[in-house]
Nucleic acid binder design. Structure first.
Lengths: 190, 190, 190, 190
DNA sequence: TAATAAGCGAGACGGTACGTCTGGTCTTACC
DNA sequence: GGTAAGACCAGACGTACCGTCTCGCTTATTA
């Protein structure tokens, strides 16, 4: 009952949060700043986003979702490359700063880490694993592939460059895919 | 001239900073807390460590240095595995939490990022690259290896698991080395 | 709109400020000390009293007001003596220390001086001048009295003894009135 | 034994202290500021002037002494007027700000008050009292004069205007002398 | 003429208080 | 019952000075 939640306020908060993260990073990302920028009262923000981290995550996902391409050409290797490339492309833009902010926040707030894993990291891994799995089934990838570790290496490289502030671009993304996939091809142990 | 810097105070500050980062992470890592725990005056801390991040880095390096093994058996691949394993072993302990804190801090303080890169990341890469380079010279690794990307993948995987709070252990470290090195061996492009 | 100001907090601050000034003088009169003694947050104090001096003045006036007697017997000379006596009596007590503190503070803060003049000094002079004016009208005081200077002499003597830490008592107050008024009586220039 | 005190340092400190008090008042009068302005080490200042107040007093007296005229024309009333005028003239200049600062400091430091009384206030009163005393002896002033109170009124008026930031000039000084002396002349009690 | 004792500049140290910023919580009025 | 406004307590921020404490260097006196 009572007055329904204001969608207007929700949008204003998420937009302001995203903008602040993109423009100035975590440093100036305070409830105070979001409130003043969005014109929404601080109390209202606290009501719906109990912690800074959760607000950051939501504003990130909100902007990130649907930007990631889960294309399906039939060729698992091509699809995997495309997925990696898509990830890199998105993270090289403003959303990258927001993602990095969320990971930083996660270091001091376990709840933020949990939600980040759950809503972003795990689904991404699941999809990637599915593609590689189809490669195995199709015989284009080694049957004894250590899937988890391959994904750690591929995705970890992206995260690392993001967090260290090193450039992410399509060329690098291709070289990453080359390097990772080369170890996944079938063939004799040399 | 003037009164010489107190080595005692320096040690107390670094120890307290390290302990706080290990025990409670960045959340409670304030100059205030370090001062009160170390018994050193807040002004003294500011005199030597102008920002939180630099204090975190120094306390991390101080504890990290010499824990990392740069062994040299003559076999570059074995040495590379040992280095990776050593990195994982150190980061799986308390120093890992401190490293993660520093990386988080680096997201909001460019100076922290710069120093972290300079004093930790770059030297580690340099050493790793040297080992792989010797493998190429010796013919046990492909001549056309994309060294930079291989290191991104190997080290990135470690960073990622660290930051996402996922376990780092010797078994995983070995599997990571297996996976990474497999793609580096010489052989026909398949 | 918004939450209304807490009268409780206001009282606690003024009382604590007054008590500190009385007990230890300006030396230990810090926002910090008032906050800790009153139990009111430092930020709340800053919200309402932007400077130390204004807080001191308000706590002084708050305690001083209504202690000063503006009696009216019909005889202006008697009333003037009573006013002077009343001033001396009040300033010889705890409020005297607070008044002295405010005057000291006024030496380094023009705003404090301005407010002190406006809310304390000027009204006191106005009332005194009114009494003496009625004496002139009634013919008991010289018509060519230099009112401003007479008040400078009468009130200045009180201020001076207060600031130099010399005793203020009824006997002295009477002698002061005698001395000042003697020069104000009508009579031939001798 | 040992190295003798540096007169150069002493002068530099007193000059700097005086200049600071004149230019910015007590607000910026810190040992730090005096040290940095004078080029003398902070420790050296503390060696010779244990408290702020004593430094202020010394720098004041140093500049004030000999500015005050104790002329002696033979006519005590004229001499008294001259003394008052001289006091007003000196205090209306830069030394006035310094004197006011010292009195302010005296409110939080009893030692400062004691020394101020001893080296400035008491000698001034003594000289003034001597002049008025000669007036009584000569019969130009009432024999039953309340000397202490007359001086309180005369000097107090000057102090008060100084501390309240009100102008001190020769005209006012003459009117003050007129007003005060009028009550001191012999004649019937009216 | 060397030792020595005090003065001095430099600058670190443990502290206190500053005035500001932000975090969360609360209370009130309005919608 | 949601929302805006804004007060409240709490506590960290980075800075300015405080008064004390080593230091190493300088300068007279005295042995």
């Amino acid at each position: 009952m009572g007055r329904p939640r204001s969608e207007e306020a929700r949008r204003a908060v998420l937009d302001a949060a995203y903008a602040i993260l993109v423009e100035t990073g975590l440093g100036r990302f305070s409830t105070e700043a979001v409130a003043s920028r969005s014109g929404v009262a601080r109390t209202t923000i606290y009501r719906w986003w109990p912690t800074r981290g959760l607000l950051a995550i939501e504003s990130f996902l909100d902007a990130f979702r649907a930007q990631l391409v889960y294309a399906e050409t039939g060729d698992p290797l091509t699809d995997f490359r495309a997925l990696l490339d898509s990830l890199v492309r998105v993270l090289s833009g403003p959303a990258g700063l927001v993602a990095a902010s969320v990971m930083a926040e996660a270091q001091s707030d376990p709840e933020t880490r949990r939600v980040f894993l759950e809503v972003f990291s795990v689904p991404l891994r699941r999809e990637s694993a599915r593609l590689l799995g189809r490669g195995i089934e199709g015989g284009v990838l080694r049957a004894d592939l250590d899937l988890a570790v391959v994904l750690d290496a591929a995705v970890g490289a992206v995260y690392m460059r993001l967090l260290l502030g090193q450039p992410l671009d399509a060329d690098w993304s291709n070289r990453l895919a080359d390097t990772v996939l080369r170890g996944c091809l079938p063939g004799p142990d040399r």
